[in-house]
């Protein structure tokens, strides 16, 4: 065998492996999509059999009868403020940790790291009592406020490390140009941080969208339930109708995929091109 063909063979093997993994990831997902447009009768023909027509009505049933319209808007109403406020706070606290010195900086940093490691299960009971004492149970505030608090540690560490990686010269140049802190943050750091901010927003979006325990424990009013929780109660009501169930599942996942596709382009874009040689 020549060198070239050996390399080609190795590349082929590698590709086959990658394709294998890709298929393993995609097949269950494709199956989910397929099932969601089948009728109950189609389902008995076999998992991989195509339906004779596409049953969109499964989605309508899930959206209307399954209350997914309500759950969807609740999720949006919770995710948008949580992501927005957390990113904003993360920018400010990240800036402080990256560039300023203040008392107990190290200690606070450690506390934040701990805050990231403690699982929700560990503090959900005290949180429940706290919310009850504040009279916030069964409100949007009960869904939003704790999740902001849970996002800020990660947002802070993420923003701080991203800011530390900004070219130092540029910030010093701004300092010499006489820009005060706020202005440097707004006009120099913020534009350079766009890729980092969109990655952070994406992470927070996915976590908040999928959050289960907080809405489960802190609200029990169906009109306040979010998507993942709605899915649980929906399952209870529709266990027999698998296609409608899968349609509900698709509705839960779809926004994540859409948001990911929008944001991931920003991941790759580098914005510091041209700052230096």
């Amino acid at each position: 065998m020549t060198d070239a063909s050996r390399i080609a063979a190795r590349a082929l093997g590698f590709r086959a492996l990658v394709w294998g993994f890709t298929l393993m990831t995609i097949v269950p997902f494709g199956l989910l999509l397929l099932t969601s447009v089948k009728s109950k009768q189609d389902l008995f023909e076999g998992a991989f059999v195509l339906p004779d027509r596409i049953h969109w009505e499964n989605y309508v049933t899930a959206w209307v009868d399954g209350h997914f319209s309500v759950y969807f808007w609740n999720s949006v109403l919770v995710v948008v403020p949580v992501v927005g406020v957390s990113v904003l706070l993360g920018l400010l606290t990240g800036f402080a940790f990256a560039f300023l010195s203040f008392p107990f900086k190290k200690t606070i940093f450690v506390v934040l790291t701990l805050g990231m490691m403690v699982p929700t299960e560990a503090f959900i009971i005290p949180l429940y009592y706290e919310m009850r004492w504040l009279g916030l149970l069964n409100t949007y505030a009960a869904l939003i406020l704790p999740q902001i608090a849970m996002s800020v540690p990660f947002a802070t560490l993420f923003m701080a490390s991203a800011m530390q990686q900004l070219p130092r010269d540029i910030l010093e140049a701004a300092l010499l140009d006489g820009a005060p802190r706020g202005l440097i943050l707004r006009r120099v750091i913020l534009p350079l941080m766009r890729p980092a901010i969109s990655s952070l927003a994406l992470f927070l979006f996915i976590w908040t969208w999928n959050e289960f325990l907080i809405p489960l424990v802190l609200v029990n009013d169906d009109s306040l339930r979010t998507m993942p929780l709605g899915m649980l109660f929906f399952q209870g009501r529709y266990t027999v109708n698998i296609p409608v169930l899968t349609a509900g599942a698709v509705l839960v996942i779809l926004p994540i995929i859409v948001v990911y596709l929008i944001f991931q382009r920003k991941f790759i874009e580098g914005l510091t091109a041209g700052a230096s040689k």
């Binding site: 010269d169 540029i170 350079l192 091109a273 700052a275 230096s276």
Partner: peptide, 26 residues
Amino acid sequence: IAMVFQSYALYPHMTVFENIAFPLQV
């Protein structure tokens, strides 16, 4: 004082005009 850095340290998201104007705007 004004300083010119080895790495130029230009603001990559601003145009040449905005770069030069920045200290004046500040």
